[in-house]
Amino acid sequence: MPSRLSPEDQKRVDHYLSAPQHQVERKPFRPWLLLLLVLAVVIGLGLVSRLLSRLVV
C-alpha cells in the first residue's frame, strides 16, 4: 500500500520511529498470565467479602 505522505514527511516519520526511545524491546504478551492474575484478584476479593460479611453479621 503506497504511503499518502509526501516523501519529505515520510522521511521525517521514519527518522522519528528509528529513534532509540521507540525501539524498546518488549516481552511477548502472555494471556494466560493475565487470566491467572484476574482470577486470583476475583477470588481474593470474594474471600475478603465473605470474611467481612461474617465479621459484621
Rank of each mutant, 00 (worst) to 15 (best):
V24K: 06
G46A: 15
L34M: 03
K27N: 11
V42Y: 07
L52F: 13
V24L: 13
L36A: 11
R50I: 14
R50N: 15
V42Q: 02
I43P: 01
E25K: 14
P31M: 10
P31E: 12
S53G: 04
V48Y: 15
R50M: 15
Q23V: 10
V41H: 08
L39Y: 09
A40C: 04
R26V: 13
S18Q: 13
F29G: 00
W32V: 02
L47N: 07
H22D: 00
L36F: 07
L33T: 08
H22P: 03
V41I: 14
L34R: 04
R26E: 10
Q21C: 10
I43K: 07
E25M: 14
E25D: 14
H22M: 05
R30H: 02
L33P: 00
E25Q: 14
L37M: 12
A19F: 00
L35I: 09
V42K: 05
P28L: 09
S18K: 12
L45R: 02
L35N: 09
K27M: 10
V24W: 03
L52E: 10
K27V: 05
W32P: 02
G44W: 04
V42G: 09
G44P: 02
I43D: 04
L39D: 04
F29N: 01
L33Q: 06
L47C: 10
Q21P: 00
L37Q: 12
L47S: 11
G44V: 06
W32H: 03
L52P: 01
R30S: 00
E25P: 03
Q21V: 08
L51K: 15
P28H: 09
R30V: 00
S53M: 04
G46N: 13
A40K: 00
I43N: 01
A40F: 03
S18M: 12
V38K: 11
L39R: 10
L34S: 01
S49D: 07
L39P: 00
G46W: 13
L45E: 02
E25F: 14
V41L: 14
W32N: 00
S53T: 05
V42I: 12
A40S: 07
K27E: 14
G44F: 08
V24T: 02
L52D: 09
A40N: 00
E25V: 15
W32K: 01
V24C: 04
W32F: 02
L47Q: 08
L34Q: 05
L35G: 06
L33F: 05
H22N: 11
L52T: 06
L39N: 08
L45A: 08
V42L: 12
G44N: 07
L36R: 04
A40L: 08
V38L: 14
